[in-house]
Computed example of a mutant assay.
Amino acid sequence: MAEGNQSTVTEFILAGLTNKPELQLPLFLLFLGIYLLTELGNLGMVILISISSHLHTPMYFFLSSLSFIDLCYSTVIIPKMLVNFVTEMNIISYPECMTQLYCFLVFVISECYMLSAMAYDRYVAICNPLRYNITMSYQVCLWMIGGVYCIGLIEATLHTVCMLRVLFCKANVVNHFFCDLLPLLQLACSSTFVNEVVLLCLSSFNFCVPMLTILSSYSFIIARIIRIKSTESRFKAFSTCSSHFTSVAVFFGSFGFMYFQPSSVSSEDQGKVSSVFYTTVVPMLNPLIYSLRNRDVKVALNKLLRKKTFHM
């Protein structure tokens, strides 16, 4: 297309999940409920862990960081998504779209590596319990969490810079409920080769490295658990592993389905469904899967409620 025939896009229209009017209100109420539960659960976990001294251990330090990530990236996505259910056209400006894309990428990439850090923490706790306090010291945990966020920031910056160089012409309807990489690239009227190479390389890296870390950690954990003689201890350890692995399977399964389908067989509607899982459902489930089923968290919550009731 000749340069003179191009009109620069200054705003996008988010198509949303559905264009059926009869589904708008039910979906609005559903995702409003999901958002409130997500914020309440994750914010509650961050506060509870920060004020309960016996939860100041590496395991809960990572849980608190995971809750913070879920809290942030659900806030980046869901409020704008809810607007789409109550307006005829959900318009987002170009700068807002790029900002949403950047923030989403920072937190979703950070979540990949936070899940692998948590798997490593469990590996050390179960397989090397005598060296746990040394291996997972406060300084080491800080470095690990700092590394997680650095990876998220660097890769999100790389993706966003590549997206900023893409030219958008007259097509401005994003067939998605937020500004994501693939739906935006479909609207481009300039070459997206660099973007696609960067996306393929970083997505493969972000999928393979955390998954290999998680699978390796749990291979050693399962081998160790099998040698435990106490049935109660074995069941407790397996329960912890299954909870973590359930969340990992949902997150990485939907992530992989979205970004690794060949374009010839991919469905935009299927992509939306998989995106719903890792942007809205997983952040809501994580407090339940990781924390609210945990005995120490329940004890801390009961103590906090009793103390509040006593003061009242």
Rank of each mutant, 00 (worst) to 15 (best):
G147A: 07
V209Y: 11
L202F: 15
Y149E: 05
L142C: 15
V166P: 00
M144V: 15
F168S: 01
V173W: 00
L200G: 11
Y149F: 13
N206S: 15
P183E: 04
M136V: 10
F205Q: 05
V140A: 08
L164K: 11
M211F: 12
C201L: 14
L184Y: 03
L167A: 13
E155H: 05
D180G: 07
L164F: 08
N175L: 11
P210N: 02
V198S: 04
C141R: 02
T160Q: 06
I154N: 06
V197H: 14
S203P: 11
N175I: 08
A156C: 12
L200R: 10
C162T: 10
N195R: 03
E155R: 03
L199P: 06
H159V: 07
Y149C: 05
F193E: 13
N195H: 03
T135A: 03
F178D: 02
E196M: 14
F177D: 00
F168C: 02
L200H: 11
W143K: 15
I145R: 08
T135R: 07
S190N: 12
P183S: 02
G152C: 06
A171D: 15
T192A: 01
T160M: 03
V166Q: 00
V197D: 12
Y149R: 04
G147T: 03
L199G: 07
I145Y: 04
L167F: 13
G146V: 01
V174L: 01
V140G: 01
C141K: 04
C179P: 01
S190T: 15
C208T: 13
I154T: 13
F193C: 07
Q139T: 12
T157Q: 07
V194Q: 08
M136F: 02
A156S: 13
L158D: 00
L212Y: 14
T213C: 14
V197E: 09
S137V: 04
L153K: 04
L164M: 14
G152H: 06
L153A: 14
A156D: 07
H176S: 05
V197C: 09
L164H: 10
V173D: 00
P210G: 08
T213P: 09
N195V: 08
I154M: 13
